[in-house]
């Protein structure tokens, strides 16, 4: 096998799936870090985002790329509302209750998507897009855009967290919520902001999953465990960790096919996860150990 083949058929697809996992994992890791629970509805939130974009493409005849930011905004709003209605009142209770609530929300979101959009697999645009060759590298514009948008979103988010007041407040909440509150950080606003970011990125993850394959109502749920693995792998609460974790999981899944039966693609993510937990429980980027 030539090196170029390895890159075209294993590394590039791995990086694309990895970027998608990363976008989902960022939301998961932020919620984990700041609000301190595992959000099991994240996958279905991604599904919702993907279908909202589909609805915009279908009804307003928008280009998918124009629909993406609108879908991200709508999903962010949905996320804030979901938090308000279903999670907020459990804030002072044991976190396990919020985890259960998020499972219920996952079921509800999926059923809404199924009722509104049906269960047939759908696509943003029909037909086949053959790759163009960039000096042997086979790439499609949608893949370039996926990668570029994911990178852009991540860089923007990291800059936001590092340099803005709100970003600093979020990091403070993540490090020590009590202390943050004493220092005058507005808990509620930070929570809302977390959901806006998580919802928007989940929608982006769902959208890219949909545009690189097809949309189906189980797409988010199926990717959820990989996203969790990515978040933990990178270190809880660390955005850059989630990104690296996502890319690692995406790459390993694709490369595992070289040595293992394809049925075990998903298992490789977990094997890595468990190994990482054994040798370095705080994750690659030294996240929190809850």
């Amino acid at each position: 096998m030539s090196g170029l083949e390895l890159i075209n058929f294993y590394v590039i697809p791995g990086l694309i799936s990895g970027s998608i996992y990363a976008l989902g994992a960022i939301g998961i890791t932020l919620i984990f870090g700041i609000l301190r629970y595992a959000h099991f509805a994240h996958g279905d939130m991604a599904t919702l985002g993907a279908y909202v974009a589909l609805g915009l493409v279908g009804s307003l005849a928008l280009s998918p790329w124009v629909a993406l930011p609108i879908a991200m905004a709508i999903t962010a709003l949905v996320a804030v509302v979901l938090d308000r209605v279903f999670y907020r009142h459990l804030e002072t209770r044991p976190k396990i209750l919020t985890v259960m609530a998020s499972l219920g929300v996952a079921l509800m979101l999926r059923s809404v998507v199924q009722v509104v959009w049906g269960v047939d697999p759908q696509v943003y645009s029909t037909g086949i897009v053959r790759a163009e060759s960039y000096g042997g590298l086979m790439l499609r514009s949608r893949e370039l855009i996926t990668f570029a948008t994911a990178t852009g979103l991540v860089l923007f988010l990291m800059a936001f967290l590092r340099y803005t007041r709100w970003g600093k407040a979020m990091r403070a909440m993540s490090d020590n919520p009590e202390l943050a509150r004493l220092c005058g950080v507005n808990n509620e606003a930070v929570t809302r902001l977390t959901w806006v970011i998580a919802g928007a990125l989940a929608a982006a993850a769902g959208f890219f999953l949909g545009i690189n394959t097809e949309l189906n109502t189980m797409m988010g749920w199926s990717a959820l465990l990989a996203m969790f693995a990515a978040a933990i792998l990178g270190g809880v609460g660390r955005v850059e960790g989630a990104v690296v974790g996502g890319l690692v999981i995406g790459l390993v899944e694709e490369l595992s096919v070289l040595v293992l039966p394809s049925q075990y693609k998903m298992a490789t993510a977990f094997v890595i996860l468990i190994l990482i937990l054994l040798v370095r429980p705080q994750g690659i980027f030294k996240g929190k150990v809850l």
């Binding site: 294993y10 799936s17 690189n212 199926s222 990717a223 998903m266």
Partner: peptide, 9 residues
Amino acid sequence: EDKKASYRS
């Protein structure tokens, strides 16, 4: 397995 994002590998 069903429902993976990529089958290129």
